[in-house]
Amino acid sequence: MITLSNIHKSFGSLHVLRGLDLTFREGEVTAILGPNASGKTTLLKCILGLVGPDDGTITVKDIPLSGSERYRRWIGYMPQIAQFPENLTVKQVLAMIEDLREEEPVRKEELIKSLRLEPELKKPLKTLSGGTRQKVSAVIALMFDPDIIILDEPTAGLDPLSSSVLKDHIQAEKKRGKTLLLTSHIMSEIEELSDRVVYLLEGQIQYDGSVKKLTEESGEVRLERAVARMMQNGHAKPSEEAADETLTDQAT
């Protein structure tokens, strides 16, 4: 379980996260959505410890993140763009991660097999296509059977077959009661995988609820439409909000 309370983060004058309060539960797949630069990636990076929030607290399994790296043992992360030491083979990269984590992989063989990575194991990374790299990255994220799985655009660059295999794995993890977070630009994928959508806009939560509720509320059949509508509506909003904020700032 992950809880975020009152998370603020600025990069220079850019206020990226503005007081987020969120809880991610076990057995739930949460999709983080939002337009570009809405703070999705920063939110994930905060949980991963790549970015330190300016204010607020994050706890993972009730343990507050305070500079210790140990909680990352519970997290499997699949980044948007994966890059590894180019001259190592796939096998060596996997061995390296095992070695660094000092953990025995639980689901390695299964993942390699289902993603059809065997023929690539002995090839150096520099010879592999982007899709194959993504598969390696997926294996790394899932093979230790982590309690928390964070996937940043997991199917981008994957062929349809691998994409569906990966989705099956995600479903399976959910059934195992894992906490899953994902971002994606493919709305059908989110519809297929997620239970819950968190829609961020300008660093704030615009919407937080189930996929079903979102489509119902918006009156659209497809999630894509619903999200698009939210985007349209949302763009009108921030200026008012910003104005409000300035007023309150001045008042206090």
Partner: peptide
């Protein structure tokens, strides 16, 4: 970044 997401100092 990959290394940073692992439990490493």
């Amino acid at each position: 970044t990959l290394l940073l997401t692992q439990p490493l100092k």
